[in-house]
C-alpha cells in the first residue's frame, strides 16, 4: 500500500483516479485550490498550489507518488491567476516532490499546447514544436507548465516524472472547456470548417494516469483516444443539436453566450491530430471506450462518485 497525492481534487478526473487507487488498496490524499466535495477514504485539503499551505500537506504525509492533475484549463480564471496556479504551483509541487523524496510524479498537461494550425502535419508526436503560443499568447501558462515539467524529467532523475499530453477529455463528470461546450443546448461549429479531432474518455485517461504511475519509464507522452473523427461527426455521434457560426461572429458569440476560451477557437478550424504510439508501447495502455460511447457519455449520465 502506498500513499498518493492527487491535485485538482474538485475535478472529475482526479476523483476517477482516486476511486481506482482506493479500490486497489492505496491511501489517497486530495488537494484543490477550490472547495472539493468529500470522498470516503480520502484525506482532503484546500490549498493553492503556489502558496505555503501546500507545503504542510507534504509535511503531514509521506507520498510515494504525486499525480498533478490540477491544471487550470479554462474559462473564468484570469491569465494572472492561471499563471500562479499552473506555473508557480507546478514549480512548487516539483520542488516539494524533490525535497520530500517522492519517487514518482505524473503531470497532466494538454495537447492544446501543440496548437491547431493550418501547417500542422498529421499525426503530431512528442518531438514536434508547440505552435499554440504564436497565435494565442494566452495559452503561455500551459506551455510553460509543460516545459517546466518536461525539463525536470531529465534534470532531477531522483523523481521519476511522466508528463501526459491528452487530447480532449470527455466524460460525465468532467467540467473542462470541451465537455462544457458539448453540454450546451445547441453546439456551434465554424461554418466551412470541420477539422479532424480526437477525444479520450475520462475512464481511459484515468487508466492512463494509473499506468503512468505504476510504470518505470519517464518522459513526455501524448495520450490520444481511439478514433480520429471530424468535429461535426463527433456532434452527430453525441446526437447533439448544432448550428453553424460564421468566423466573423465567433468573438461576439464567445463574449455573450458561451464562456469557451477564445484561444481554443482554432481547434474548430484546423486539425491537431496527435499520436500516442509511444505511450501505448511504453506503458501497455490502450483506450477501451470507443468514440461513439465517449461522446455519448457527456449527457445524461450522472456521477456515481458523489
Amino acid at each position: 500500500m502506498a500513499t498518493i497525492l492527487i491535485t485538482g481534487f474538485a475535478g472529475g478526473l482526479a476523483r476517477r483516479v482516486a476511486r481506482r487507487l482506493l479500490d486497489a488498496g492505496h491511501a489517497v490524499v486530495g488537494v484543490d485550490y477550490r472547495d472539493a466535495p468529500a470522498m470516503d477514504g480520502v484525506t482532503l485539503y484546500r490549498a493553492s498550489y503556489d502558496k505555503t499551505a501546500i507545503e504542510d500537506v507534504f509535511r503531514k504525509h509521506a507520498f510515494s507518488a504525486v499525480l498533478h492533475l490540477g491544471r487550470v484549463g479554462n474559462l473564468s480564471k484570469q491569465v494572472e491567476r492561471r499563471f500562479e496556479l499552473n506555473v508557480l504551483g507546478t514549480q512548487k509541487i516539483l520542488t516539494l516532490c524533490r525535497a520530500h523524496g517522492v519517487a514518482t510524479l505524473v503531470v497532466l498537461s494538454t495537447f492544446h499546447i501543440y496548437g491547431a494550425h493550418p501547417r500542422n502535419h498529421t499525426p503530431i508526436s512528442e518531438q514536434d514544436p508547440l505552435r499554440a503560443g504564436y497565435d494565442f499568447p494566452q495559452i503561455a501558462d500551459a506551455i510553460q507548465l509543460d516545459n517546466m515539467a518536461s525539463t525536470w524529467v531529465y534534470q532531477y532523475p531522483e523523481v521519476r516524472v511522466v508528463v501526459l499530453r491528452p487530447v480532449n477529455v470527455v466524460g460525465p463528470t468532467i467540467k473542462n472547456s470541451m465537455s462544457t461546450l458539448l453540454r450546451l443546448p445547441r453546439v456551434p461549429y465554424l461554418a466551412g470548417f470541420n477539422p479532424m479531432m480526437q477525444f479520450v474518455h475520462e475512464d481511459d485517461l484515468a487508466a492512463a494516469v494509473e499506468a503512468a504511475m505504476h510504470g518505470s519509464a519517464r518522459g513526455v507522452f501524448n495520450v490520444a483516444g481511439s478514433d480520429v473523427i471530424p468535429w461535426r461527426t463527433a456532434l452527430d455521434l453525441a446526437e447533439l443539436k448544432t448550428f453553424p457560426i460564421p468566423g466573423s461572429l465567433v468573438s461576439l458569440y464567445l463574449r455573450t453566450i458561451s464562456a469557451f476560451p477564445g484561444y481554443l477557437v482554432n481547434f474548430f478550424k484546423y486539425p491537431c491530430v496527435i499520436t500516442d504510439q509511444e505511450f501505448r508501447r511504453t506503458f501497455g495502455w490502450q483506450p477501451v471506450v470507443g468514440a461513439r460511447e465517449t461522446l455519448r457519455s457527456i449527457t445524461g449520465a450522472t456521477s456515481d462518485l458523489g
Partner: peptide, 10 residues
Amino acid sequence: LNDLGFDMWG
C-alpha cells in the same frame, strides 16, 4: 480507415 470510416487526414 477507422471504424467510423475516416483516416487521420480526414
